[in-house]
């Protein structure tokens, strides 16, 4: 019996371990080694910290780095603010029959690829796009306005692409909440605001945490949306990495940036968990 259990565990865990080893650990070790190498004046490959030093000395790298981190946090907060009322409405207010239908409606846009969705936004927002056409023909605008290629549009695009990953954990954590908890708090003298802060938010906290982590990481590592909707002035750190690898062909520099981004996301998530007093294991289970 025990041997069978061991064998079963072994069979199931092997693909996971292989996947982790071959696709995560090995490439990362390779990248780490790469980031610590550089060429000296003679063109020979040597061990060096120059790639990391470059990051701290070049202002543009710094600037992009901080900007990306800040915007990713803002995207996470905005996504939460947009999706929480939706999740609350679906789980607590409409009838159960309708809530399944609404959830499907919510998921439907995510059946098409991110690229197609971003192009959809571009068709709506560009200078010759649908919204400009409607506004000018209605007489509200004299001339078409370029709505693409600025930070606001980029943020909106990022929030839109991340919504799914916030709304699903929120719905599942709110679904588990008994309505009588809300009534009990109300009965014990709590105002609607207090109920929200003391009962609903703490109850949904694991869902909020796991949603936030996923959304934050996706936003931080997103390439497509900032590239297509953000335009020239909205640099994203992933674009810097891409440039190093593809444009400059400086793989060592690109690898160093990659590791800095990894360190940054880990640090911010760690800080977020500390501040909200959540545990990673609890949030993701």
């Amino acid at each position: 019996m025990k041997n069978h259990f061991r064998l079963g565990l072994f069979i199931f865990i092997t693909p996971v371990l292989l996947w982790l080893l071959l696709l995560i650990i090995v490439p990362h070790v390779e990248l780490l080694l790469m980031s610590l190498h550089g060429k000296d004046d003679m063109g020979r490959t040597v061990w060096t910290l120059a790639n990391y030093r470059n990051f701290f000395t070049e202002e543009i790298y710094w600037y992009t780095f901080v900007r990306t981190a800040l915007y990713a946090v803002i995207v996470t907060i905005l996504t939460f603010l947009v999706t929480f009322p939706v999740a609350f409405y679906i789980t607590k207010i409409v009838s159960p029959r309708l809530s399944g239908f609404l959830t499907v409606l919510l998921l439907m846009p995510f059946w098409v690829s991110e690229l197609v969705r971003v192009y959809g936004w571009m068709i709506l927002l560009r200078e010759s796009g649908v919204i400009n056409h409607l506004l000018t023909s209605a007489g509200l605008l004299d001339a078409p306005v370029e709505m693409l290629y600025n930070d606001i549009t980029m943020l909106m695009g990022l929030v839109y692409t991340s919504m799914l990953f916030m709304v699903v954990p929120l719905i599942s954590s709110l679904e588990g909440m008994d309505d009588s908890l809300i009534e009990a708090a109300h009965d014990l003298g709590a105002s609607p605001m207090t109920i929200f802060y003391r009962i609903i938010i703490p109850y949904a906290a694991p869902g909020i945490t796991s949603g936030s982590i996923v959304v934050f990481m996706l936003a931080l590592g997103n390439y497509l949306t900032p590239k297509l909707m953000g335009g020239k002035n909205s640099l994203w750190f992933t674009e810097q990495i891409y440039n190093e690898f593809i444009a400059s062909f400086n793989w060592n520099q690109g690898a160093a940036f990659g590791f800095l981004l990894l360190a940054l996301s880990s640090l911010i998530i760690w800080a977020g968990l500390k501040i909200s007093k959540q545990q990673l294991g609890k949030a993701l289970s």
């Binding site: 009588s180 908890l181 009990a184 014990l188 009962i199």
Partner: peptide, 15 residues
């Protein structure tokens, strides 16, 4: 929340 009555719920509804 302003009534001088309190309710013990069927499923208790402890937080």
């Amino acid at each position: 929340n302003r009534r001088p009555v309190n309710l013990v719920f069927q499923n208790l509804a402890l937080f």
